[in-house]
Computed example of a mutant assay.
Amino acid sequence: MPQTPVERQAIGNCWLYAEAGWVESMHLAATGESFTASESYWTYWHWFDQITQDDATEIQTGGWERTAHRIISERGLVRQADFVPRDNGPEMSPQQKGALDAVNAELVSGRLSTASARADRKLVRRVLDKAWGLPTATRSWLDAAFGADASRTIDDGAGIEGTPILSPSAFQVRYTESTTSSRPGVFKDTNLSQAIRDWHSEQYPTGATGRRNFMIRVQRALHDRQPVVLSWAVDFNALEQGTSERRGAFNMTTLRAKGPGHQGGHMVVLEDYQAMTQNFGLLPAGTTLDPSQAADRAKLDAALLPSTSVQFLRVKNSWGAVRADRSSVPGFPGYHDLYMDYLNGPIAWCPNADDPSPATCRGRTVPLWTAMMPPGY
């Protein structure tokens, strides 16, 4: 999979890191350039919309790909170094957590503590600019592009020429599209705006047959090296931290031994998978098969048979490459394996409980929620 380096989220905006991974992978495939998008830039606009449109009195950091798509369509994208220069280099943004605390303080008892203040778009911009510590030059090109009140967007006349802002309609990407289940993906060289229109998210179905058919489509996209995005439920007590063969993996064996732990929704970009086939036995993750070679092509075809069992999905994560509390897959810093026994669950769902127990949990959930895939898959 064409992937850019792993980064580490500082707040609950994994969905924007997954969006960046998706964008960067498609751009890398198209140009060979390892572009690093600024998640802080998109986060800035996510907060602006919450305050001015939703009258938020506390920032919610979570979101989904449709929100990320909208932000990109309206505000474009910038390089990491061009928005918050301090973000460029460290694995984790040194600015996001401080900015979040500062904005929430303003919403509680500061300049944005009244509804009329939150409706003042120029004031909201000034508060955000200060909270993020934006240099004067950055504030100037934001004003030039969108106006001091951010009333202009890319679709309705934002003046981005001469600024670091890149329009999604001019941002090169490459991905594949397929019209039949047996036809390999055909490269499509286009722009990010078209990708946003083309890619689609689908719910993980119920029932063994529906789930296997869903997974075959995901596998086909991975065979064509496409950055499929997964939305799923995390229970950190399912992450194996020890020295067993499942180190760095979310699995039910580890979860059953510990019971429910800290939980929440999460988004990641797929990298690989491991499967057991009838004809070739185990097809291990971390091994590249060349479809131009007949023997490898036969293995790839066998991997897509209904009789094949996917054991786990390997994902590029936004938790950093080296963390004592987030053991990665050995040899793959920042990557984790999601075993199908965990993704199929179900698991007790206790996302708001500090001390999960049957009394604080609200039912059960299947951890795998959705997959965002290219057209035709």
Results as ranks from 00 to 15, higher is better:
residue 363 G to R: 08
residue 363 G to C: 06
residue 291 P to F: 04
residue 191 N to D: 15
residue 66 R to L: 02
residue 29 A to T: 01
residue 216 I to Q: 15
residue 75 R to K: 08
residue 56 A to Q: 03
residue 134 L to A: 07
residue 159 G to M: 07
residue 80 Q to N: 09
residue 169 S to E: 11
residue 145 A to W: 07
residue 196 I to W: 10
residue 61 T to K: 05
residue 160 I to L: 15
residue 308 T to G: 05
residue 235 D to G: 05
residue 374 P to S: 02
residue 161 E to R: 03
residue 117 A to V: 08
residue 366 V to S: 02
residue 331 G to W: 00
residue 175 Y to I: 01
residue 326 R to K: 11
residue 4 T to G: 04
residue 111 R to T: 11
residue 223 H to S: 00
residue 310 V to H: 07
residue 63 G to Q: 10
residue 237 N to R: 12
residue 346 P to F: 08
residue 120 D to I: 09
residue 241 Q to L: 12
residue 145 A to V: 14
residue 219 Q to D: 09
residue 330 P to D: 06
residue 93 S to W: 01
residue 88 N to S: 14
residue 7 E to N: 06
residue 193 S to C: 00
residue 56 A to H: 02
residue 318 S to A: 14
residue 74 E to W: 14
residue 64 W to K: 14
residue 216 I to M: 15
residue 123 L to A: 13
residue 190 T to R: 02
residue 220 R to C: 02
residue 369 W to M: 11
residue 151 S to A: 15
residue 178 S to G: 11
residue 116 S to D: 12
residue 70 R to E: 13
residue 228 V to N: 02
residue 218 V to P: 01
residue 345 G to M: 00
residue 318 S to M: 10
residue 372 M to N: 03
residue 1 M to I: 06
residue 39 E to G: 11
residue 281 G to V: 10
residue 82 D to T: 08
residue 97 K to G: 12
residue 182 S to L: 07
residue 17 Y to Q: 10
residue 160 I to M: 05
residue 126 R to K: 13
residue 153 T to I: 06
residue 22 W to Y: 13
residue 144 A to W: 09
residue 239 L to V: 07
residue 157 G to S: 03
residue 183 R to Q: 11
residue 325 D to H: 08
residue 153 T to A: 10
residue 77 L to Q: 06
residue 12 G to M: 02
